[in-house]
Design a binder for these strands. Structure first.
Lengths: 339, 339
DNA sequence: CTGAAAGCGCTTACAG
DNA sequence: CTGAAAGCGCTTACAG
């Protein structure tokens, strides 16, 4: 293993000079710098990360704490992960990816052992167990997902309430007066996935204001249950002209359900979903949708985290950054047809 | 920050004794051990990872190098990732997740800086650029995906050739005599995704041996293209009674295609896919399929990597572990109907 | 069974 | 502009 001592010897300078020549933290004569750089190149020197971390109390690593539930759509998580790791690397950080079930104790362990400079928590729930250890951790954190209590945290999420309103408004403006919303399963909500109710509540309120009927259903998270749920919904409410989907499985199953009922979108039914672009593309979902903006959220979270790590961010101002929803129109919304 | 010095002081022993009491690397009197353990608990001591790594040349971290292509089905990657991180943690390792485009230089950087004890390479291609730096790295590695040259590497993959044969055999045994195979796009193959041709070539050879006609198509990796591809295939070969899918997008699109043609499986068409169980479940794919065994592969790779790290594995014997394919029957295969 | 000391490979005040 | 030295927090021979 080649150390900075080897570099120093090869360059004919002291170890401190070699170190300074590489960090640029004090002025160095041009030819010493050149000699050091040459030595580095020749010997193939790379600083030892552990030694540097020990000396500087900086690891240049962030931890990414995933949180996976069986009844949630896991593949969507990959977009967040990639958005974060890629942005982190661009900012000079590697990413320790943690998927332990017990995220709280994982956070404590990693924080206490000083393995990382900061944390990104994914899929944060209403009363997330990881928040308390994060609060007392020596390293800063950024949340992806809005918890009930945001005080003291930097939070990044899609504005699900605005998304609910937007869906209703758009269909109302086109003339729809009876809509149905299919949410994630109710247990997602119960264990703290408050985004489900944030969207649903806001949609309901906006529907009330606008005089639109809105039926609400907690759909299953997989097949074949969700297919049956959709059929039952359409059977029960034949006058529904617009469908709002906050449930990936429902979006994936709907094309088949529509086809088997001889329905087409938007002719018979307008549809607006809420899922990632990437998801839509992969599964060829033909529905207009509000992008969940996974990679953008990840990017923002990392950028803010790094500004906290480096001390650029204002120490006592926390941000709650809710991304405004945008409907990506794929042609599944239109005025209701007169039957 | 509480250090082992604090623990030693609180326990009234030397730092070395405290260290040994915790590691158990030499015999310690019962009451000293108790005092040290009490001090650890009281002070909340956790060893500093960087310091330990510096002293022991062990980080207890493995690097997981992802490799993502636009034309591949990225969400499937998550299963591998979770299989690996979970198994690694169970064995005492954290996972540095790396998604840089330039995996070769990432590997070099991470290896040279001694950030990890070993590497798992995901989605290894025929002539993977990461293999050369891995070969010269100071740390061992395990490959998920079979490259052209396996010498000197531990390799884990599904046995795609056996999968191709199995698909053909199963349908032949049921009486099918004209089949079609839909592979990933040809450019997946061109940039080194040799599993595509391993499956296709083996299927073709087996079909020849058995006197079965086998049409082969490189399908698109997304909608709407793959839908058109499937329609075109069925138009061109109306006598095909069995469909083999080595293409996730095709599997996702097929239900819609069948429905719009008024076809049902297995009555009109037997179908066997090759994708993960998890994928099938999430998208409610009703097709019998060979599980790609993502988490099992990840698990095996990590276990073997760890045995290399700890020196348990035989230093000069390398393993190429190809998991035998198994058809998970979901009822989409039957004898061909006489039309 | 226990302690004092060296050393892992860096960085960074302290001196000049 | 440069060097000698201390220190980051561990582990582990070396002595007793």
């Amino acid at each position: 293993m080649v150390t900075i001592g080897d570099v120093a010897r090869a360059a004919g300078v002291s170890r401190s000079t070699a170190s300074y020549a590489l960090s640029g933290k004090r002025s160095i004569s041009a030819d010493v710098r050149r000699k050091v750089e040459d030595a580095v190149r020749e010997l193939g020197y790379t600083p030892n990360a552990g030694a540097r971390a020990l000396a500087t109390s900086r690891t240049n690593v962030i931890a990414l704490l995933g949180q996976f539930f069986d009844d949630e759509f896991a593949p969507a998580m990959l977009q967040y992960i990639l958005g974060i790791t890629n942005r982190a690397r661009a900012l000079g950080y590697d990413t320790l990816f943690v998927s332990e079930d017990d995220g709280a104790s994982a956070l404590r362990r990693i924080s206490d052992s000083r393995m990382v400079d900061g944390f990104v928590l994914l899929n944060v729930s209403e009363r997330d167990e990881r928040l308390e250890p994060l609060r007392t951790a020596a390293q800063p954190g950024a949340l992806v997902g809005l918890p009930g209590e945001t005080d003291g945290f930097d939070v990044f999420d899609l504005d699900f309430a605005a998304a609910g309103r937007l869906m209703v408004e758009r269909l109302h403006d086109l003339g729809h007066r009876e809509l149905a919303l299919v949410s994630q399963p109710e247990h997602v909500l119960e264990r703290g996935g408050a985004y489900v109710s944030r969207l649903a509540d806001a949609a309901r309120d906006r529907a009330d204001e606008l005089g639109v009927r809105l039926h609400h259903l907690f759909g299953a998270s997989g097949q074949p249950e969700i297919g049956r749920d959709l059929h039952a919904l359409l059977d029960a409410h034949p006058d529904v002209t617009g469908l709002l989907l906050n449930n990936e499985a429902a979006a994936a199953a709907l094309p088949t359900v529509l086809q088997s009922r001889g329905l087409a979108s938007p002719d018979d039914l307008s549809v607006i979903g809420r899922y990632s672009d990437d998801f839509a593309r992969t599964f060829s979902l033909p529905f207009s949708a509000i992008d969940s903006a996974a990679d953008e959220l990840g990017r923002r979270a990392v950028e803010h985290l790094v500004s906290r790590i480096t001390g650029t961010a204002d120490a006592d101002t926390y941000v709650v950054d809710l991304i405004a929803p945008v409907i990506d129109d794929r042609g599944s919304i239109a005025a209701p047809s007169r039957k």
